[in-house]
Simulated assay, not measured.
Amino acid sequence: MTTPAKLYGKDLSEYDEVDVDELLAKLSPEEIKILAKEVDPDDSFLPPSQRCNYDCEKEATGPLNRKQLIDHINKQAIETPDQPELKPYVPGTVRGKKWIPPPPPLKEQEASEQITIDLGDEYEQALSDATQEEIIDLAAILGFHSMMNQDQYHASLLNKGQPIGLGWDGITKASKQKIYPQDPPNTTDPDETIKQVQQDDPKLVDLNWNNIKNISDEKFDSLFEGLANNSHLETLSLTNVGLTDRSALKLADALEKNNSLRVVNVETNFISPTGIVRLIKSLLKTKCVEEFRASNQRSQVLGNKIEMEITSLIEKNPTILRLGLHLEYNDARHRIATHLQRNIDTIRKDLALRLQFRFFNHRKTPLIN
């Protein structure tokens, strides 16, 4: 049992009905000043000038001049003489008590003494007679990866002999960096391929305009106008070509009329989230595109509303198998992944049924005598 808190012999509940304003009206100005000094200075309801117990009785000399105040403080600091030292400074002598670090605890001393381990004559002899290859293998087993370079580590994993000069002497040697040649520029002629698309050339199955700079809007318009009536093109790659929403809408109109495209790639361009939704919506018209990629656009974040709209459109598409798009929310990623896997399983089942149908049709039934 805990006793209730009391103040001057009375319970705190009895002070709830006391009129504070009436009590303050009975106090004199001197008593109010004394009471103000006893107030909690951390009270945020008080102005900053009343949170300090110091009370200056001097009258204000005028408005605050910050620059003049700082100059006065600097002048006082310069003109004030330094306090003389009791003991003069002498180079090389220690004044006062010198700090000596305390000795380490007894447990740490015992642990440092136990680090030296005697392996015995057999192990010492085995380690002294071991070759560099065997020591490197042992280091890899014990996990001393940082003591070896890449060649030594992978050689120990693959149980290969070390090359000359790559033993313990080559611990600090780094393997040479492999220099790969840069990708050659895209030599595809946009004007020639536009003519092939418009003429429905059966030889043009894969159109790759990746990384071609300074493609005009007129060329995009001509390409997409010919794409609407093309029946042989299967792969369209337009990565890093400066594609904007204006051209993306023309591409969406062409995708609604094309029945041959299987792969569409418009990554690394300047398409807005609404433009991406328009492209994905166009895939529902013919339902022939199996792979669509549109990541790394100017707007990296699509937003919850756009992602949910894309998810609902993908769930209505029974033919798409791969989607290259960065999604931020787990719900959208999970639902799209589940639907894509369902489409893949459906295609596998259809393929298995077709194979069974062909097998039974071509099987020779034995003749019954």
Score class of each variant (00 low, 15 high):
Asp121Arg: 15
Leu243Thr: 07
Phe45Trp: 07
Leu223Asn: 05
Ala332Asp: 03
Pro190Ile: 07
Asn343His: 05
Ile306Val: 15
Leu283Asn: 03
His145Met: 06
Leu261Pro: 07
Leu69Asn: 12
Leu227Tyr: 02
Pro63Gln: 06
Lys67Asn: 12
Ala36Phe: 13
Ala254Asn: 04
Leu46Thr: 13
Ser295Ala: 08
Asp191Phe: 06
Ser216Ala: 12
Lys219Ser: 12
Leu127Gly: 14
Leu325Ser: 06
Leu261Met: 08
Lys281His: 14
Glu79Gln: 13
Leu142Met: 14
Gln114Glu: 12
Leu157Glu: 14
Glu192Tyr: 12
Lys349Leu: 08
Arg322Ile: 11
Gln341Met: 10
Ala139Thr: 09
Gln356Gly: 01
Asn265Ala: 04
Leu69Ser: 10
Glu59Cys: 04
Gly226His: 01
Glu291Gln: 03
Leu353Ala: 14
Leu313Tyr: 11
Ser146Gly: 09
Gln341Arg: 00
Gly96Val: 11
Glu290Cys: 03
Leu207Lys: 02
Glu291Val: 04
Ile179Lys: 06
Pro184Cys: 10
Ile136Thr: 15
Ile115Glu: 15
Asn259Ile: 01
Gln114Met: 08
Leu23Ile: 12
Gln68Pro: 00
Ser44Arg: 05
Leu233Ala: 05
Asp331Cys: 05
Lys97Ser: 07
Leu46Glu: 10
Ser231Lys: 11
Gly303Tyr: 01
Gln341Thr: 09
Phe224His: 14
Arg342Gln: 13
Phe270Cys: 01
